[in-house]
Design a binder for these strands. Sequence first.
DNA 1: AGAATAAACCCCTTTAACCCACTATTACCC
DNA 2: GGGTAATAGTGGGTTAAAGGGGTTTATTCT
Lengths: 147, 147
Amino acid sequence: MSSFKGQFRYTLDAKGRLNIPAKFRRALAPEANETFVVKRGFDSCLELIPIDEWKIYEEKLRRLSTTKERNRRFLRMTTANASEDTCDKQGRITIPAELLKLANIEKEVLIIGVLDKMEIWNPETYQKHLDLPGESYEDIAESISLD
Amino acid sequence: MSSFKGQFRYTLDAKGRLNIPAKFRRALAPEANETFVVKRGFDSCLELIPIDEWKIYEEKLRRLSTTKERNRRFLRMTTANASEDTCDKQGRITIPAELLKLANIEKEVLIIGVLDKMEIWNPETYQKHLDLPGESYEDIAESISLD
DNA sequence: AGAATAAACCCCTTTAACCCACTATTACCC
DNA sequence: GGGTAATAGTGGGTTAAAGGGGTTTATTCT
């Protein structure tokens, strides 16, 4: 099972190709075959999910009843903004332009590991996300119970 | 099970490498394979957790629901500021620059044992942390129930 | 058939992983 | 108690790989 940790700053090239950190590629399960699903994430980022982990998630999506309008909308928002891709020989994947736009990414990119997936951020967006006043790491930790 | 105790003063070299006290290395469980996760700790220190202990913690993190914004923020703050590393032949690990910055560590380092993990401090930060007025060892003990 | 788009291949620069060397302290033995 | 040997702690250099960019070849749509 993958366990992505850490943060890396990369640049996107003119073709929308993004390097996957070598550390993360090494952490991939062999079943993943260097293949990912890139999808819209929460809080204006993108999620990069190894295909083996994605399949688990997809199963849950399939179980959503499509007789409910809310479910239909959520499904469309998710799947329409998702893309499957495999690393090229240089360890890069191509991110579709509409996803880059959703996350306000132009050239500078921050990739962070979040255990079973990675997140792709515009570095400034990420900084703003963290800088919520009165919400320090210690503050949040006090309110979260891990057991 | 590991049981780290005591304190040690070391220096960080130009490459961000830190010696692990030999006493602590000998206290490691064989399953740990001399491998640690360094992560952001509380109160401006870093935590150095043997990989076998980390896995227990990671399981708890994975159970946090990511549909809640607060949980996502906490997860990111934790995993993006974590790094897995194995001791080199000299018994050192490399601490990423962004973690050193979080803990205000430049060269002088204090390593303390806290049972199942170690903490890495800037010695002055640690001293200030202890010197909180009106918070003597005895005062704190009054408010803590151990049974 | 030609143009546009995307995929595959290749190269260069920089970084970090790995290896070796030295000093000082501690432990052990005579 | 002094000498010796092992080990702990620190420092530096070399090399392979990672990251960033460009060029050519295939493919698809017009």
